[in-house]
Design a protein around this nucleic acid. Structure first.
Lengths: 146, 146, 146, 146
DNA sequence: TTTT
DNA sequence: TTTT
């Protein structure tokens, strides 16, 4: 059993792509989740990477934009990928199963049924799933990652 | 293990009272939680009763008003009470452990520490905890509420 | 958003029935969920009614037996039904979306996909869904209920 | 709002340490959480790192052993730490707020109150909190553990 | 680096 | 007895 529920704001617009194989939609975004008991001099939020697939991906790719306050119900996933130098990278992220608007005006429940379109292989090479350019790394939040 | 997470709107202002014994704050409200896959001709929401104690009660008693969209993390509680005729009533409600604003402008995490001030005896007689008038039934059990 | 996660033991074997309309499987059972901070002289557990539909119902109807420790992920549902005297009854229960074995030996994740076979009308008359005998009331735990 | 509920097995015994500053207990372990819809040729589980503080840490340090099936309620935390070469590492883990035994015989709710003893500074240098040797990396970051 |  |  693996269930996570998060409410937070998008740090930037959702990144929507499509797998090369079966052309499945894959969306990714980062949620800034404010800490309940934040201490001064410490980070005020956790920055949690979220991935969505299929219909859910298309939905969030369309409506989940920078700064929007949303709720995500999903599961924690861990995976590894190997970079060009053959070094193994460990990734922990949340796979969205249900998504909701939290902000006013945008509160109707979103009818995105659980989607079973997750591809079977995590196409490796750069640690992310869909086809992409070299300079297009996942969740590197503006920083240059090796 | 007993954990519930709800996002919904208050159907009316929070009802805040104090126990007669130790004068602990007790707040109650009902959350209208819209259904994800509502069917036409069917109810569009579930109406879930929520109780809060101590600091949490004082907080929601102050800020949780009718129509506000909030998030509640808590546990499901079942209990019984006997009415004047000696008839047993079964109650299922959520005891709030953490509360959050979901609507914009009101989104900062709310620092209400888990409160251990729950009284040890559920003062019986009318099925509710705090001191109250005879015509003052929990969640307004069928009576007219002002 | 409406998510509940419970771990507890079945108070009796699951009750499995079928709707008269479309012959959908409906299972119901009660979970005794031990309280984390139980106080002496107070109830040690909450008794939470759970309903499951379709494939999930058939699964739990087969494997969820009295005393078994299980985990249920679902949503809180409220509904009303009218008894013979035309009196309205309020029901709060958990609709199971995912189920798991918690006890050893029975721990493999259970592949019961979310089921959309919930009937559109709650066939009333006795407060429960499927066809049933008169003496066959839901969740009355052995007591005679008026 | 940031809530995660996991049921899984310990991949090894809990690692219990104490911070140098205030001598707070810190426990860490990894949970193998089996996937609900595992695909063949794909990983069957997610391996999720969990950290606990104070009383909770002492509890799990004592009772959470390799192979035990447990439930953890907590929050997802992200943080960074710099290694000896000044390289930044990103960590995502679950901070345990409540813990339970899932396996039979070990099912009583565990009374470990939420603990507020989390230190204010994450003593850096090697990405982990408690006092430790140089070769003592968080979650055994690539080194051989006994 | 992974559990049953 | 229900919210937007």
């Amino acid at each position: 059993m693996n269930k996570s529920i998060l409410m937070g704001r998008l740090t930037k617009d959702t990144d929507l792509r499509y797998t090369s194989g079966n052309n499945t939609a894959v969306a990714s975004f980062t949620l800034a989740v404010n800490r309940r008991f934040a201490k001064e001099g410490q980070p005020q939020a956790d920055f949690i990477n979220v991935v969505a697939w299929g219909k859910t991906a298309e939905f969030v790719g369309k409506y989940f934009t920078k700064g929007l306050q949303v709720v995500v119900v999903g599961r924690i996933q861990t995976r590894t990928w190997d970079d060009n130098e053959g070094k193994k990278h460990y990734v922990t992220e949340v796979v969205a199963e249900e998504t909701y608007f939290a902000d006013s005006k945008r509160t109707a429940p979103i009818a995105n049924k659980p989607d079973s379109s997750e591809p079977t292989v995590s196409e490796s090479g750069d640690g992310f799933y869909p086809p992409m350019e070299d300079d297009d790394l996942p969740f590197n939040g503006g920083l240059d990652f090796p």
